[in-house]
């Protein structure tokens, strides 16, 4: 890029200090967390020598493992559903005109704007009122439905941006070349918006794995996700077990991000 300037003198020093501080601010807590997850002392933040016990306890602890498994199940289920619905919504808004389109457009993004707590209360009320009708008990179903409800918006925002950037005539060209509507979607539209779908899916997965507030409201007895479980542990007294759990969650998120970057990289080199 021609606009890049190499800083010199005092500005260079100050810029270096700035970036150092920013990185410190970002990563110091993470590094501390990782270090103390290996600490052999019941008090968080007091170093008591190296141990892997907390990870062992995490692996052995029945409730922790169950919470983790719950989290994964909910994240996967809600991601799949919200990716499908969010993508369909995005396609409808970008490719078709229909009655009430503008209203639908505005309403679709409501969950992004509404505060989590409001959303949580709404969901709680909804399930409480309709528990009898829907036959849902609080747990997997209610949590998954809630996560789908907010994830759809995020997925469709990401996918829509991708569709908007795509030349509509590519679909016309496909149909001119004897593709049916479905084939045009399958071989032209879908591959071109796939990075958006993957990005949206990843976002949905992360949001679902992270969510505490909404999940806490709609979770039932005996049905908890990992973040809510960790939150509960803190109230009982903090042990380095929390650190270990957090490190595992951190590594899982990083692995997801790395995976998505890798997938997109393969796709772009494949298509470049």
């Amino acid at each position: 890029m021609s606009g890049v300037i190499t800083p010199r003198g005092a500005s260079r020093t100050l810029l270096s200090i700035n970036s150092l501080l920013v990185f410190l601010f970002f990563y110091a807590p993470i590094i501390l967390l990782i270090i103390f997850s290996f600490s052999d002392n019941r008090n968080v933040g007091v170093w008591g020598g190296f141990t892997l016990d907390w990870y062992g306890e995490f692996a052995d602890s029945q409730p922790t493992r169950k919470a983790l498994w719950n989290s994964i199940q909910i994240a996967v289920a809600s991601t799949i559903v919200s990716v499908v619905l969010g993508t369909l919504g995005a396609l409808a808004l970008e490719r078709f005109t229909f009655r009430g389109k503008q209203v639908f457009d505005a309403l679709l993004y409501l969950p992004i704007i509404i505060p989590d707590v409001t959303m949580a209360v709404m969901m709680l009320l909804f399930f409480a009122e309709l528990a009898g009708v829907l036959g849902l008990s609080k747990g997997f179903a209610t949590i998954t439905l809630s996560h789908i409800a907010f994830s759809i918006s995020f997925v469709s925002v990401v996918v829509r941006a991708r569709i908007a950037g795509m030349d509509e005539r590519l679909e016309e060209a496909a149909m001119d070349l004897y593709a049916s509507r479905w084939q045009a979607f399958r071989y032209v539209t879908l591959p071109l918006i796939m990075p958006g779908i993957l990005g949206g899916g990843l976002l949905a997965l992360t949001l679902s794995l992270d969510d505490v507030v909404i999940t806490q409201f709609v979770a039932g007895p005996g049905w908890t996700t990992l973040p809510v479980f960790v939150f509960g542990l803190i109230r009982k007294g903090v042990t380095p077990l929390i650190n270990a759990v957090s490190v595992v969650m951190l590594l899982a998120s990083m692995a997801l991000v790395a995976l998505s970057l890798f997938v997109q990289r393969v796709r772009t080199t494949d298509s470049a």
């Binding site: 005539r169 149909m175 071109l192 298509s271």
Partner: peptide, 20 residues
């Protein structure tokens, strides 16, 4: 008739080649 049922083909303005 939809475009895929016609014995004609089009060279589009700016070509509309499939980039992928």
């Amino acid at each position: 008739l939809p475009p895929n049922k016609r014995p004609v083909n089009t060279v589009f303005q700016n070509y509309a080649l499939f980039p992928h």
